[in-house]
């Protein structure tokens, strides 16, 4: 049962309310469906709508997204070409108007495709609680950190190095079967760096260390990517859900890894 919706005017007021047990919402597109449908314990919400946390700053190669920046803002920002396509693969227009960057970090799989991309981009967050603020990576964030994510920061990848594929049951507005996001750098035809994140194939976003290890030092060929896909099968933990079976996700994962990394 929803007992109060706070709409604080600044971050410190929001943090105090969260420390007191209230739940933060960005757009509410994950939390409200639950509250609309299920009996919940008394719940207080803190809306971030007026906290001034919405906004995109690009300074050289560094991008800072306020946690309350909507997916629609990211979708339409020409400076964020790599993320435009990522965001367009998420939900529908009237959901993206509401849903936020910070909220997507806590979307339950097989949702949360932006978080997959942000792990591949080695993004970092600022987490504020009533004792102060600290910085950590999106990968380290976990499901329920204490405090409020206020910003997400990453370095824009070199042109052509960011790869993203989301396989879904429908072309638009469908949850992930397999999501692959990666940054891959090459020198003289050899992979010199790879950071690969996966969605849809586990209870959380998976950083695919075995896939990365199979790529680095090799030429980016069909054979290399096939071996990386085999290696990756050991680190995914897919589940059955309404979209696909775990078996199916395991079966097609290497195909979508190849499409992401090689474009075919």
């Amino acid at each position: 049962m929803l007992t109060e919706v706070h709409v604080p005017d600044d971050v410190s007021a929001a943090v105090r309310l969260i420390a007191g047990g209230a739940t933060a919402i960005g757009g509410g597109t994950s939390v409200l469906p639950w509250l609309n449908d299920y009996a919940s314990p008394p719940t207080e919400l803190v809306s971030l709508r007026r906290t001034g946390l919405a906004g995109i700053r690009v300074d050289g190669q560094t991008v800072e997204l306020g946690a309350a920046t909507t997916l629609a803002q990211v979708e339409h920002d020409e400076r964020l070409a790599d993320l435009n396509a990522v965001v367009r693969s998420i939900a529908s227009t009237p959901v993206r108007t509401l849903a936020t960057v910070g909220g997507n970090l806590f979307a339950r799989q097989p949702h949360g495709d932006l978080a997959v991309a942000l792990v591949a981009l080695d993004a970092r967050v600022t987490l504020v609680d009533d004792t102060g603020s600290r910085e950590l990576s999106v990968e380290e964030l976990g499901d329920q950190p204490s405090g409020l994510v206020t910003t997400v920061t990453f370095e824009r990848p070199q042109p052509g190095t960011f790869k993203y594929v989301k396989a879904a049951r429908r072309r638009y507005n469908s949850a992930s079967l397999v999501t692959v996001a990666a940054t891959v750098t090459e020198s003289d035809g050899i992979v010199t760096g790879a950071r690969v994140a996966l969605g849809g194939v586990g209870p959380r976003v998976i950083r695919a260390h075995a896939v990365e290890a199979a790529l680095v030092g090799q030429p980016l060929t069909v054979e290399t990517v096939r071996a990386a896909g085999e290696a990756g099968r050991g680190e995914i933990e897919p589940a059955d859900d309404a979209y696909a079976s775990a078996w199916y996700r395991t079966r097609v994962f290497p195909v979508h890894l190849r499409r992401a990394l090689l474009g075919r």
Binding site: L2, V5, V7, I25, G27, G28, T29, L32, P33, N36, D37, L45, S47, R49, A72, A91, S92, T93, P94, V95, T97, L98
Partner: peptide
């Protein structure tokens, strides 16, 4: 009431939203 069907779509400050997921207080 899940934001999935769009039958509640209205424009909020000019942009389309699923109004079933918007707490009025906000």
């Amino acid at each position: 009431a899940q934001g999935a069907c769009g039958s509640c779509t209205v424009l909020l400050d000019g942009a389309p939203v699923v109004s079933c997921l918007v707490p009025a207080a906000t």
